[in-house]
């Protein structure tokens, strides 16, 4: 395995919150803001290393997830939109590209719709945020933390490669914190917005929508809604892959990103 990615870690004050940020890659390269899943984000992933070769990679942790302090007042993913706009302003980054993973895809889509001029490219991976026309977004309240994380992978060996076959108790505690914050933000309607389908039309950034063909978390039928709302967007369906495309097929996913952003 390659040497671990050397993150520069800092806490950036945004709206009174010390937001945890990990940053890697060449400064001056195109900035890429990664918005993580509702299960938080591992520190070291092959996809991080791959993207940090070409981009100024920004990996913040949502407040209330992992080690970022919870904001008890937050009630909607749109609150995170304001936080991340604040982060980009604090870092003096006028035009980033957004990579939104699952729940983070919802935040990214909201960001790009609320500030259409601000973003270079938009990449959404199995995004939540829109009610699928067929099926429902998997309700994590009804399944164990491990089962929910496993549901994100088509190939369970890929899950084990990231989290271990039996995730540690520390990992379970982290997932429970993440889950609690997700409930605080998106309990009802669960993990989707009734206005986002309409707001997508405001987005100007060229968009790439990526979906694992075997996604068990967000039914792929939702891709139709995103494609209908994002004129000119490209859709890439990754075969033999679950929801967590960036973790299950990192090399293939990295190619999709670099082909799209450049």
């Amino acid at each position: 395995m390659a040497a671990p990615l050397a993150w520069q870690e800092s806490h950036i004050p945004v709206a009174g919150l010390p937001l945890r940020l990990r940053r890697a890659g060449p400064r001056g390269a195109p900035p890429l803001l990664v918005l993580h899943r509702d299960s938080g984000t591992p520190d070291q992933l092959p996809i991080h290393a791959a993207l940090a070769e070409r981009y100024d990679l920004l990996l913040p942790e949502h407040p209330g997830y992992g080690q970022s302090e919870r904001a008890p007042w937050m009630r909607h993913p749109r609150d995170l939109v304001a936080i991340y706009q604040g982060l980009l302003a604090a870092l003096d980054i006028p035009r980033a590209s957004l990579l939104g993973l699952g729940f983070g895809g919802w935040i990214a889509a909201e960001m790009a719709s609320l500030a259409p001029r601000d973003f270079e490219r938009l990449i959404l991976v199995g995004p939540m945020g829109i009610k699928p026309p067929q099926g429902d977004i998997l309700d994590q309240a009804l399944v164990s933390h491990t089962d929910y994380a496993r549901a994100g992978f088509h190939d369970q060996a890929a899950f084990a490669a990231v989290y271990g076959a039996e995730p540690s108790t520390d990992q379970l505690v982290e997932w429970d914190l993440c889950r609690e914050m997700s409930f605080r933000l998106a309990w009802k309607p669960y993990m989707h917005s009734q206005t986002l389908p309409h707001l997508l039309g405001a987005i100007r950034a060229p968009a790439l929508v990526v979906w694992g063909a075997e996604d068990k978390v967000v039914p792929i039928s939702a891709a139709d809604r995103f494609m209908a709302g994002l004129p000119g967007a490209k859709l890439a369906v990754v075969p033999d892959c679950g929801a967590c495309v960036e973790m299950e097929k990192p090399a293939e996913f990295a190619r999709l990103v670099t082909d799209f952003i450049g």
Binding site: A141, S144, H145, T169, L172, D176, L177, R179, E180
Partner: peptide, 23 residues
């Protein structure tokens, strides 16, 4: 165990105990 203790329902001090129980 998952249904009887949804995230956020219990005291934070019981979090570790409940997640261990749930697995």
């Amino acid at each position: 165990p998952v249904w009887s203790t949804p995230a956020g329902y219990s005291s934070p001090e019981n979090r570790r105990g409940f997640v261990e129980f749930s697995t």
